[in-house]
């Protein structure tokens, strides 16, 4: 993680640390592959004619596809820990159109101490190349000292 925050917590994670960025070009081929893998064949993602009548005017990527990038960022930042006690909550703010490049963002905002153990709370999201946010939210991951990835500071 990159950071410039407060004194490190027990796993060396600091408030202010940034999570690794996942950057992806979303293509229509990827949307179609995702539809097949997730069995989500909503025509707003697949049918240009149908989508042209929607408020978006054209096909959009599945929200769950975009969210998968954020989930991957958290798996990278907190290997093992995110899948064993992690939480994620996001709001979808803008559609992602095939052909757009998006990147994830995330930052540690607090260290939490609970009865089930210590955790790391982060803001997370996904930003489009024009700077607008496709989704934003927050996530927590339990603190597992030996499993927190530290990319850089």
């Amino acid at each position: 993680m990159t950071g410039s925050g407060s004194e490190p917590g027990s796993a060396g994670v600091c408030v202010g640390d940034r999570l690794p960025i996942i950057r992806r070009l979303v293509t229509q081929e990827q949307v179609e592959a995702y539809a097949r893998s997730a069995k989500d064949f909503n025509p707003i993602h697949l049918d240009e004619e149908f989508a042209s009548t929607s408020r978006f005017g054209r096909r959009i990527a599945h929200g769950m596809l975009v969210l998968a990038f954020v989930s991957e960022m958290l798996e990278t930042a907190f290997p093992g820990a995110y899948a064993s006690g992690g939480e994620l909550s996001v709001r979808f703010k803008a559609p992602v159109y095939p052909g757009e490049t998006i990147e994830t963002f995330g930052q540690v905002v607090s260290m939490e101490h609970g009865v089930e153990g210590d955790g790391v709370r982060c803001t997370v999201g996904c930003r489009k190349s024009d700077g607008s946010e496709a989704l934003t939210g927050h996530a927590t991951a339990p603190m597992v000292v030996e499993r927190v990835t530290r990319l850089s500071r």
Binding site: N42, P43, I44, F50, S54, I60, H62, G63, M64, L67, Y82, A83, S84, G85, G86, E87, L88, S89, V90, R91, F92, P95, G137
Partner: peptide
């Protein structure tokens, strides 16, 4: 045309 507004998950 159904779209996603928000999503939460706990693993």
């Amino acid at each position: 045309g159904t779209i996603h507004a928000s999503q939460g998950a706990r693993f």
